[in-house]
């Protein structure tokens, strides 16, 4: 089963072509990383999968439907979203919005409402955010917010997870923790994952495929082909090394901006 497929797709924003001739296929249940330099169009690709970015040419199919028509089966974490201190809404309520926030009418007390409350508690537990889920989301740290937002994306048991730089504001142990969490959801619940990343190391061991976006197009490949010194150096236009650590894992070492791309 194919989760996402693009055929000769092109995206244009305000008359400028971001990428074109994009043809790719992501099979159901795969864990795929989307790599590429800043401004290359990774977020645009994710938005195109959601139907938020219309295609200027070509065609696409997402979970067997045109983009935008299967969004209730997709969990989405946009890039670098943070709530400022004045947002006086509990984390748990933000997670709940991911479950039934698009429904009209007020939630009536009853079996359905209790099930919703249980599901919210469950996903919050899954991302280990129970300790702070009842605090106003604006008062949480970036990493704590990120965990709750991942829980929000998981709330509806999506078949496809689109995570735009989910590891962005996490410290190293948390990056590894969230990466492992996403991987286990992918394996155990057969969820397809498209994960945009700048630092590929935390997810390197889990990948089924890589989509790299650069030079006005996007290409997919097997991780072992893309995660090589030559390909990555060409992709980012700076020298990058791929080393093998003593335990056999690959480590990408490169220009500092592969890790710290975003100045704060």
């Amino acid at each position: 089963m194919t989760a996402v497929s693009f055929e000769g797709a092109e995206a244009r924003i305000g008359g400028t072509t971001i990428w074109r001739d994009v043809s790719l296929t992501v099979e159901r249940g795969q864990f795929v990383a989307v790599l590429g330099p800043n401004g290359s169009g990774k977020s645009t690709l994710v938005r195109a999968v959601l139907g938020l970015q219309p295609l200027a040419a070509g065609s696409a199919s997402v979970l067997g439907r045109p983009p935008g028509e299967a969004n209730d089966r997709i969990g989405y974490l946009p890039q670098r979203r943070s709530f400022d201190e004045s947002t006086r809404i509990r984390g748990a309520d933000v997670v709940r919005l991911g479950l039934d926030g698009a429904r009209w009418g007020l939630p009536l007390p009853g079996a359905r409402s209790r099930a919703a409350t249980r599901r919210v508690a469950e996903v919050i537990e899954l991302v280990s955010a129970t300790a702070y889920a009842d605090k106003p989301i604006g008062e949480l740290s970036g990493g704590e917010q990120q965990r709750l937002l991942i829980a929000q994306a998981l709330a509806r048991r999506p078949q496809l997870l689109l995570l735009d730089e989910p590891l962005d504001s996490l410290d190293l142990p948390n990056q590894a923790g969230v990466a492992a969490l996403v991987r286990s959801i992918c394996r155990e619940e057969d969820v397809t994952v498209l994960l945009v990343a700048h630092d590929v190391n935390p997810i390197l061991g889990y990948l089924d495929g890589v989509i790299y976006v650069a030079g006005g197009t996007a290409v997919e490949g097997a991780p072992e082909d893309v995660i090589s010194a030559e390909t990555l150096s060409a992709l980012y236009g700076v020298p990058i090394d791929v080393l093998r650590a003593s335990d056999g894992r690959l480590v990408v070492v490169g220009a500092p901006d592969l890790h710290g791309h975003h100045a704060h």
């Binding site: 938020l52 209730d72 997709i74 989405y76 974490l77 979203r81 709530f83 929000q152 994306a153």
Partner: peptide
């Protein structure tokens, strides 16, 4: 609270 995700959710 969350316009981007709301938009994606229809």
């Amino acid at each position: 609270v969350d316009p981007d995700v709301a938009r994606a959710s229809g």
